[in-house]
């Protein structure tokens, strides 16, 4: 094996056998797998546990009856389901126009070279990471007390709007950015104004992305209990909201309420209500995926 003979043609290979996967490689692969297994196992355990525990109460009583303390077997979560629909529906109505408007401004009008705009951009991303309880304190100060809205559906919806607005803006901007620049130029070169170009070309092309981001943001809002605890959603409510200025409760708060009740029947009811909440969340996410696929195929 002396280095002098390097000019000679290599000998024919007699064996292609190697050492195979080394111990280090194998350990690394199993470590990665462990990470995945831990996440999945806990999720499956949670779902199984909740379904098994809530099974005795998973029936029409949940959405047909109001909560009651005296007869646990007659208690239901109708007021919480209706409250959730009212609060999240109002949140959607307020956050869609606001979020889209902000994103269109940042993406289509703001000059990215200006320092102010870069600062705004950075802060929107920071806002998306602010804990929700902080938004609750903000909502309590501004909407409940400052504007005198009290503990109402409107105050809750406005607070949740603030909470999800950064997420909506970021998702909408990404959807707008995915619209090719050539579409904008094609439209402008035909003598369309900037407004026409945005309304007739850019926004329609971005709708699937905007809708997906909006739904995912709203499904975050549905699960929030912390900010609403500060906004008076803790109340024991035995009626459905009848307007924006009505008292309300929502599913996460109702669940929190029942979980902390010493009676076993209420804990079972809480598990059943968690299943209802999970089903609503899954349905919303499925709808978001459906929207994305459907529009992607068309274009």
């Amino acid at each position: 094996m002396s280095a002098v003979q390097t000019t000679r043609a290599p000998e024919p290979v007699l064996s292609l056998a190697g050492k195979g996967e080394s111990v280090g490689d194998r350990v690394f692969r199993y470590l990665l797998l462990t990470g995945l297994v831990v996440a999945i196992v806990f999720l499956v355990t949670l779902i199984t546990f909740v379904i098994l525990r809530g099974l005795p109460r998973l029936d029409s009583r949940i959405w047909q009856n109001m909560p009651t303390l005296r007869k646990p077997e007659m208690a239901g979560a109708q007021s919480a389901i209706m409250g959730t629909i009212w609060v999240v529906g109002t949140t959607a109505l307020v956050s869609i126009p606001l979020g889209v408007a902000a994103a269109v401004y940042l993406e289509e009008f703001a000059n990215p070279k200006r320092r102010v705009n870069r600062l705004i951009e950075l802060n929107i991303q920071n806002l998306a990471a602010v804990p929700s309880i902080v938004y609750g304190i903000l909502g309590l100060g501004i909407f409940v007390r400052g504007m005198g809205l009290g503990f109402t559906v409107l105050a809750a919806a406005l607070t949740l709007t603030l909470l999800i607005l950064p997420t909506v803006i970021i998702a909408t901007r990404e959807a707008l950015r995915a619209v090719p620049q050539s579409i904008r130029h094609g439209s402008l070169a035909l003598g369309a104004t900037k407004l026409q170009t945005i309304m007739r070309q850019v926004l329609p092309a971005a709708i699937p992305g905007i809708a997906t981001g909006q739904i995912l943001a709203l499904s975050r809002a549905i699960g929030e209990a912390a900010p609403l605890l500060l906004l008076g959603g803790l109340a024991f409510v035995t009626f459905n909201p009848d307007g924006l200025l009505s008292d309300y409760t929502v599913l996460p708060i109702q669940i929190y309420n029942w979980i902390s009740n010493p009676k076993e029947e209420f804990r079972i009811l809480a598990s059943a209500t968690i299943v209802v909440l999970l089903v609503i969340l899954l349905a919303m996410n499925a709808f978001a995926i459906y929207l994305r696929n459907r529009f992607q195929k068309r274009i």
């Binding site: 090719p180 579409i183 130029h185 094609g186 070169a189 003598g191 369309a192 007739r200 092309a205």
Partner: peptide, 22 residues
Amino acid sequence: FQKPNPFPKSIYDNIAYGPRVN
């Protein structure tokens, strides 16, 4: 333009776009 850039719309709407916006 260098790369054909039709709008993601029907052929008819592509042609009608200019007259409509103007």
